[in-house]
Protein backbone atom coordinates (compact mmCIF):
# COMPACT_ATOMS: atom_id res chain seq x y z
CA UNK A 1 0.00 0.00 0.00
CA UNK A 2 1.23 3.52 -0.86
CA UNK A 3 1.86 5.94 2.01
CA UNK A 4 -0.89 8.52 2.40
CA UNK A 5 0.56 11.99 1.73
CA UNK A 6 -1.03 15.28 2.76
CA UNK A 7 -3.28 16.33 -0.13
CA UNK A 8 -3.31 19.86 -1.60
CA UNK A 9 -6.03 19.50 -4.16
CA UNK A 10 -9.56 20.35 -5.32
CA UNK A 11 -12.82 18.43 -5.03
CA UNK A 12 -15.21 16.66 -7.38
CA UNK A 13 -18.85 16.95 -6.21
CA UNK A 14 -21.31 14.07 -6.54
CA UNK A 15 -24.31 15.11 -4.41
CA UNK A 16 -26.32 11.85 -4.50
CA UNK A 17 -27.17 9.73 -1.45
CA UNK A 18 -26.75 5.97 -1.13
CA UNK A 19 -24.23 5.56 -3.95
CA UNK A 20 -23.81 1.78 -4.07
CA UNK A 21 -20.73 -0.13 -5.17
CA UNK A 22 -22.60 -1.48 -8.21
CA UNK A 23 -22.61 2.12 -9.53
CA UNK A 24 -18.97 2.70 -8.58
CA UNK A 25 -17.91 -0.42 -10.51
CA UNK A 26 -20.61 -2.56 -12.18
CA UNK A 27 -20.40 -6.34 -11.63
CA UNK A 28 -19.61 -7.13 -15.26
CA UNK A 29 -16.15 -5.57 -14.76
CA UNK A 30 -15.27 -7.82 -11.82
CA UNK A 31 -13.93 -10.62 -14.01
CA UNK A 32 -10.37 -9.29 -13.89
CA UNK A 33 -7.98 -11.21 -11.66
CA UNK A 34 -5.61 -8.32 -10.83
CA UNK A 35 -6.16 -5.09 -8.85
CA UNK A 36 -5.18 -2.67 -11.60
CA UNK A 37 -7.12 -0.92 -14.34
CA UNK A 38 -10.54 -0.56 -12.73
CA UNK A 39 -10.41 3.26 -12.95
CA UNK A 40 -11.36 3.20 -16.64
CA UNK A 41 -14.76 1.79 -15.71
CA UNK A 42 -15.33 3.85 -12.55
CA UNK A 43 -19.04 4.90 -12.51
CA UNK A 44 -19.23 3.37 -15.99
CA UNK A 45 -23.01 3.46 -16.49
CA UNK A 46 -23.32 7.04 -15.22
CA UNK A 47 -20.25 8.14 -17.14
CA UNK A 48 -20.75 6.55 -20.57
CA UNK A 49 -23.65 5.79 -22.91
CA UNK A 50 -24.16 2.22 -24.11
CA UNK A 51 -22.07 3.02 -27.20
CA UNK A 52 -19.14 4.12 -25.03
CA UNK A 53 -19.39 7.86 -25.65
CA UNK A 54 -19.14 10.07 -22.54
CA UNK A 55 -22.29 11.57 -21.00
CA UNK A 56 -21.58 15.31 -20.85
CA UNK A 57 -23.74 15.87 -17.76
CA UNK A 58 -21.81 13.47 -15.50
CA UNK A 59 -19.35 15.19 -13.21
CA UNK A 60 -16.30 13.09 -14.16
CA UNK A 61 -16.78 14.23 -17.77
CA UNK A 62 -17.14 17.88 -16.84
CA UNK A 63 -14.17 20.15 -17.66
CA UNK A 64 -15.16 22.23 -14.60
CA UNK A 65 -14.06 19.68 -12.01
CA UNK A 66 -10.87 17.82 -11.20
CA UNK A 67 -9.00 16.78 -8.07
CA UNK A 68 -8.09 13.94 -5.74
CA UNK A 69 -11.09 14.25 -3.42
CA UNK A 70 -14.54 12.94 -4.31
CA UNK A 71 -17.26 14.68 -2.26
CA UNK A 72 -20.41 12.53 -2.23
CA UNK A 73 -23.81 12.23 -0.53
CA UNK A 74 -24.41 10.23 2.64
CA UNK A 75 -24.18 6.43 2.91
CA UNK A 76 -21.47 6.22 0.27
CA UNK A 77 -20.38 2.73 -0.80
CA UNK A 78 -23.41 0.73 0.31
CA UNK A 79 -24.26 -2.68 -1.13
CA UNK A 80 -21.80 -5.23 -2.42
CA UNK A 81 -18.54 -5.84 -0.53
CA UNK A 82 -16.45 -5.63 -3.72
CA UNK A 83 -13.12 -3.99 -2.87
CA UNK A 84 -12.88 -3.30 -6.60
CA UNK A 85 -14.93 -0.13 -5.85
CA UNK A 86 -12.12 1.28 -3.71
CA UNK A 87 -9.52 0.11 -6.27
CA UNK A 88 -11.45 1.84 -9.08
CA UNK A 89 -11.58 5.16 -7.20
CA UNK A 90 -7.89 4.91 -6.36
CA UNK A 91 -6.95 3.90 -9.90
CA UNK A 92 -8.86 6.93 -11.23
CA UNK A 93 -6.68 9.19 -9.08
CA UNK A 94 -8.83 9.75 -5.99
CA UNK A 95 -7.05 9.60 -2.63
CA UNK A 96 -9.96 10.56 -0.35
CA UNK A 97 -13.77 10.38 -0.40
CA UNK A 98 -15.69 12.87 1.73
CA UNK A 99 -19.21 11.96 2.85
CA UNK A 100 -21.39 12.33 5.93
CA UNK A 101 -21.31 8.58 6.42
CA UNK A 102 -19.91 5.49 4.79
CA UNK A 103 -21.13 1.92 4.51
CA UNK A 104 -19.03 -0.24 6.86
CA UNK A 105 -17.48 -2.64 4.36
CA UNK A 106 -16.57 0.15 1.93
CA UNK A 107 -14.90 2.09 4.75
CA UNK A 108 -12.72 -0.91 5.60
CA UNK A 109 -11.92 -1.63 1.97
CA UNK A 110 -10.95 2.01 1.35
CA UNK A 111 -8.58 2.00 4.34
CA UNK A 112 -7.01 -1.23 3.10
CA UNK A 113 -6.50 0.37 -0.34
CA UNK A 114 -4.90 3.60 0.88
CA UNK A 115 -8.01 5.65 0.09
CA UNK A 116 -9.13 7.85 3.00
CA UNK A 117 -12.86 7.71 3.89
CA UNK A 118 -13.25 11.17 5.42
CA UNK A 119 -16.48 11.60 7.38
CA UNK A 120 -17.88 15.08 8.07
CA UNK A 121 -21.25 16.23 9.41
CA UNK A 122 -24.31 16.63 7.15
CA UNK A 123 -24.01 20.43 7.46
CA UNK A 124 -20.29 20.42 6.61
CA UNK A 125 -20.94 18.14 3.64
CA UNK A 126 -23.69 20.45 2.33
CA UNK A 127 -21.37 23.46 2.70
CA UNK A 128 -18.51 21.70 0.91
CA UNK A 129 -20.74 20.55 -1.98
CA UNK A 130 -22.16 24.06 -2.43
CA UNK A 131 -18.70 25.62 -2.12
CA UNK A 132 -17.13 23.37 -4.76
CA UNK A 133 -20.06 23.80 -7.15
CA UNK A 134 -19.76 27.59 -6.79
CA UNK A 135 -15.97 27.53 -7.19
CA UNK A 136 -14.47 24.37 -8.71
CA UNK A 137 -10.98 25.74 -7.96
CA UNK A 138 -11.71 25.86 -4.21
CA UNK A 139 -8.50 24.61 -2.61
CA UNK A 140 -8.78 21.69 -0.17
CA UNK A 141 -6.08 20.37 2.14
CA UNK A 142 -6.42 16.90 3.65
CA UNK A 143 -4.03 16.67 6.60
CA UNK A 144 -4.21 13.14 7.99
CA UNK A 145 -1.71 13.59 10.86
CA UNK A 146 -3.79 16.57 12.10
CA UNK A 147 -7.07 14.82 11.16
CA UNK A 148 -8.43 17.90 9.42
CA UNK A 149 -9.94 18.80 6.07
CA UNK A 150 -8.98 22.43 5.56
CA UNK A 151 -10.55 24.99 3.25
CA UNK A 152 -7.99 27.82 3.36
CA UNK A 153 -10.28 30.26 1.50
CA UNK A 154 -12.83 29.96 4.32
CA UNK A 155 -10.23 29.82 7.10
CA UNK A 156 -11.99 26.56 8.02
CA UNK A 157 -10.64 23.24 9.27
CA UNK A 158 -13.15 20.39 9.63
CA UNK A 159 -11.98 17.69 12.03
CA UNK A 160 -12.57 14.01 11.30
CA UNK A 161 -12.23 10.82 13.31
CA UNK A 162 -10.12 7.79 12.37
CA UNK A 163 -8.99 4.73 14.31
CA UNK A 164 -5.47 5.42 15.67
CA UNK A 165 -4.08 2.15 14.33
CA UNK A 166 -5.55 2.60 10.84
CA UNK A 167 -4.20 6.17 10.76
CA UNK A 168 -0.67 4.87 11.41
CA UNK A 169 -1.17 2.23 8.72
CA UNK A 170 -2.22 4.83 6.12
CA UNK A 171 0.58 7.24 6.97
CA UNK A 172 3.22 4.50 6.82
CA UNK A 173 1.70 2.40 4.04
CA UNK A 174 1.34 -0.65 6.33
CA UNK A 175 -1.44 -3.18 6.00
CA UNK A 176 -2.99 -5.68 8.42
CA UNK A 177 -1.39 -8.82 6.96
CA UNK A 178 2.03 -8.17 8.46
CA UNK A 179 0.47 -7.34 11.81
CA UNK A 180 -1.72 -10.47 11.83
CA UNK A 181 1.04 -12.83 10.68
CA UNK A 182 3.12 -11.57 13.61
CA UNK A 183 0.30 -12.61 15.96
CA UNK A 184 0.84 -16.27 15.08
CA UNK A 185 1.96 -17.43 18.58
CA UNK A 186 -1.12 -15.82 20.18
CA UNK A 187 -3.39 -17.28 17.49
CA UNK A 188 -1.97 -20.79 17.96
CA UNK A 189 -2.32 -20.49 21.73
CA UNK A 190 -5.94 -19.42 21.22
CA UNK A 191 -6.62 -22.48 19.05
CA UNK A 192 -5.31 -24.76 21.83
CA UNK A 193 -7.42 -23.32 24.64
CA UNK A 194 -10.83 -22.94 22.97
CA UNK A 195 -13.74 -24.27 24.96
CA UNK A 196 -15.62 -25.46 21.90
CA UNK A 197 -14.65 -25.74 18.28
CA UNK A 198 -16.61 -27.41 15.51
Amino acid sequence: MEKFQTLHTTGVPLPLENIDTDQIIPARFLKATTREGFGTNLFCDWRYRADGTPKADFVLNSPRYAGQVLVAGKNFGCGSSREHAAWALYDAGFRAVVSSYFADIFRGNALNTGLLPLQVSDAELARLLAGIEADPQLALVVDLPAQTLQVPAWGAAFGFAIDAYKKECLINGYDDIDFLVNQKPAIEAYEQQRAWAW
Binding site: S81, R82, E83, H84, A86, I105, G108, N109, N112, T113, D163, Y165, D175, D176, I177, F179, L180, V181, Q183, K184, I187
Partner: peptide, 20 residues
Protein backbone atom coordinates in the same frame (compact mmCIF):
# COMPACT_ATOMS: atom_id res chain seq x y z
CA UNK B 1 -20.25 -11.16 7.65
CA UNK B 2 -18.89 -10.06 4.29
CA UNK B 3 -15.33 -8.84 3.83
CA UNK B 4 -13.20 -7.19 1.14
CA UNK B 5 -10.43 -8.87 -0.80
CA UNK B 6 -7.63 -7.44 1.40
CA UNK B 7 -9.37 -9.09 4.36
CA UNK B 8 -9.71 -12.35 2.39
CA UNK B 9 -5.90 -12.30 2.17
CA UNK B 10 -5.64 -11.55 5.89
CA UNK B 11 -7.78 -14.56 6.81
CA UNK B 12 -5.80 -16.73 4.39
CA UNK B 13 -2.58 -15.65 6.12
CA UNK B 14 -3.70 -15.75 9.76
CA UNK B 15 -7.28 -17.13 10.10
CA UNK B 16 -7.98 -13.81 11.86
CA UNK B 17 -9.16 -10.27 11.19
CA UNK B 18 -8.42 -7.04 13.03
CA UNK B 19 -11.84 -5.50 13.72
CA UNK B 20 -13.75 -2.85 15.63
Amino acid sequence: FGIGTSQVAQVMASQCLLLN
